[in-house]
Structures are given as C-alpha cells and as structure tokens.
C-alpha cells in the first residue's frame, strides 16, 4: 500500500504527515491530530457527523482520503470557536435553544450551518433545513437545531450593526 507525504492547514495551523493511501481524513483528524470534535458516525457517507470545511465548503471527511487533502485548508469544529474553551455566536445559539442532546451530530451540524450562514446571512427555514439535510440527528427532532441556526443568523446580522442599531433591532 502506498504511503504519501502530505501538508495541509488545519484550523490555521500547518500540518505535515506521512499517511497510508487508505486513511480517511476523519481518521487522520481524530487519531493523528487528536481533533476529536469531528465525529465518525457511519463511516460511509450517510450521517454527516464527520463534516468539515475543505477549502471553505462543507464535505464529509469519511469520504475524503487524507492524502486527497494535501495542500488544502481544513476547518474542523474546533476551528469555529473564537478560542479554546469559548463559544462562537453559532455555538452559543445551539446551547441556548437546546439544539443538542447527546451531541454526536453537533459538530457536523455546526459545520453545515456555519457554511450556510457564511453564504447566506438571512436563510429561510427551508434553506436551513436544506443545508442540514445531509446531517442526521437521532435525538432532537431537528426543531431546536433549526431554531438555533435561525437565532444565530439573527445575532450575526446584528453583530455587524453599530451598537445602537443592534440594540434597537433587539427590541
């Protein structure tokens, strides 16, 4: 089996390694880099738990070989927080609307919804549901997740306004 030298950026940090051809990106992130926020659920492309951003777009890291990520930029759920131990606006909204129970799907949901909000500041409920359509959740029934993303969208829009308008907007 062929071995390959790869270099890529993960959450802003450059990483180099030698990987076997068959190693998937999710296994590399979790086992080699110990970035265990990205979850391995089905390992064959069905559940979305393993979603990461690859060059800015959400993909399933169980369907991407580590060697294929060579030269690219990866962002995992760990890269969404402003700094370790804190929550970004989107994550905070998940917390506030009870958008997680066991949390297994959450990292994938966060990646999918982060990508949505980066492209569309005011998504409709349908657009939110479409964006997380590839992510399975066995606990919440999705309602709270959709609420969380809508709440985060609203807050992120407000965060771009000068303080006074934002305050008016809240009321």
């Amino acid at each position: 089996m062929s071995q390959h030298e790869i270099t890529f950026t993960v959450n802003g940090e450059s990483q180099s390694a030698t990987v076997a051809a068959r190693l998937t990106l999710v296994d590399f992130l979790r086992d080699a880099l110990r970035l265990t926020g990205t979850h391995a659920g089905c390992e064959h492309g069905v559940c979305g738990a393993c979603s990461v951003l690859l060059d800015g777009v959400p993909v399933r890291s169980c369907l991407t070989l580590a060697v294929q990520a060579d030269g690219s930029e990866i962002v995992t759920v760990e890269g969404l927080a402003p700094e370790p131990g804190t929550l970004g606006i989107l994550q905070d909204s998940f917390w506030e609307t009870h958008a997680l129970q066991c949390g297994f799907c959450t990292s994938g949901m966060l990646i999918a919804s982060h990508a949505l909000l980066a492209a569309n500041a005011s998504p409709t409920e349908d657009e939110i549901r479409e964006a997380i359509g590839g992510n399975l959740c066995r606990c919440t029934g999705y309602k709270q997740i959709v609420d969380a993303i809508a709440l985060a969208a609203e807050r992120l829009r407000g965060s771009n306004l000068p303080a006074k308008e934002a305050a008016d907007d809240e009321r």
């Binding site: 979603s51 777009v57 993909v59 369907l63 999918a112 964006a131 590839g134 992510n135």
Partner: peptide, 9 residues
C-alpha cells in the same frame, strides 16, 4: 442529487 456536502465533492 445528494446533499450540500456530497454535491461539493
């Protein structure tokens, strides 16, 4: 076809 994540690849 598929989902956002699978269409991206």
């Amino acid at each position: 076809v598929g989902h956002v994540q699978t269409r991206n690849r």
